[in-house]
């Protein structure tokens, strides 16, 4: 005899979480619900006189299989939400009626069954081992092979061979130039060192601020300074020297001159 309490606990612990399969949106939630179902089933096994299976159920399903599911969910994107709106016409009705019909039919069949009462057996590890390695030893071996095959198959399927040799740094750089990206690093913020320069944009050769040289975080926090006051000072001090110097590439001049001017200002 089985304790009704055990049955009802197991029933609630399995049926309710398993409904998540039908109604939950997030795959992670579903996976966790199924873990619950597995645990419930393990309890049922123990209650039905199969303590070994109960332990194996916990170890294999909750410990290995469902964790594997979770790993894969993480790999393919944990935040995937599924739109439950049905895309195949009539599929929902078909599913409802077939699943319901199947349940009704199965229950109808089970209701007819009568089984003569028998002695209770307990599937403790020793008893299981005696049967498993006696009558079913060949099946056991074959299953071992199956597992190895499956493992190797999974390895083969998930392995991606490298089709091209790994690129060197020089090649990566050449590719960047070809793609039209900046040949050098992006400009750093903080041209003017007298302030906390991280919030001040750098200047381009024409003296215009380069907005994206400042961290996006500061921009979002609205802590960016536009640096107008520093530019004014720069212009007033730098202009007279410009005329005395021979013409060079403007960018280099400004790069070299700007720190010097600011040092002077700071003094």
């Amino acid at each position: 005899m089985v304790s009704p309490v055990l049955f009802w606990v197991v029933a609630l612990l399995t049926v309710i979480p398993s409904l998540a399969l039908l109604f939950a949106r997030k795959a992670v939630h579903i996976a966790m619900s199924i873990v619950l179902v597995m645990v419930g089933l393990a309890a049922a096994y123990v209650g039905l006189g199969a303590p070994f299976l109960g332990v194996v159920q916990i170890v294999v399903y909750t410990g290995a299989v469902m964790m594997l599911f979770l790993f894969v969910l993480m790999l393919v994107g944990v935040d995937q939400r599924e739109n439950l709106k049905e895309t195949i016409k009539g599929q929902r009705w078909i599913a409802f009626f077939t699943a319901g019909g199947l349940a009704v039919l199965l229950i109808a069949v089970i209701g007819r069954v009568t089984i003569a009462p028998a002695d209770e057996v307990v599937g403790d590890p020793e008893a299981i081992a005696l049967v498993l390695f006696d009558r079913y030893v060949l099946v056991m071996e074959v299953l071992g092979m199956l597992l190895i095959t499956a493992a190797i198959g999974a390895l083969v399927m998930t392995h991606t061979p490298r089709l091209l040799p790994r690129k060197t740094q020089a090649e990566l750089h050449a590719a960047r130039v070809l793609a039209g990206a900046d040949p050098v690093n992006k400009p750093m913020p903080g041209v003017f060192a007298r302030h906390n320069a991280l919030d001040v944009p750098a200047l381009d050769p024409d003296g215009n601020p380069i907005e994206h040289s400042v961290s996006r975080v500061l921009e979002v926090r609205d802590q960016m300074s536009d640096g107008a006051e520093f530019r004014e000072r720069l212009d007033s001090t730098a202009n007279p020297e410009d005329h005395q110097r021979p013409h060079h590439a403007p960018s280099r001049e400004s790069d070299q001159r700007a720190p010097r001017a600011s040092e002077e200002d700071g003094k």
């Binding site: 195949i88 599929q91 599913a95 077939t98 699943a99 019909g101 199947l102 039919l105 199965l106 109808a108």
Partner: peptide, 21 residues
């Protein structure tokens, strides 16, 4: 649609079970 195929299988199974019952 893989799910349609699965539905077909299951419908077959239900019919088979219905015949048996």
């Amino acid at each position: 649609q893989v799910r349609s195929y699965a539905a077909t299988m299951l419908v077959g199974l239900v019919i088979l079970a219905a015949v048996i019952v």
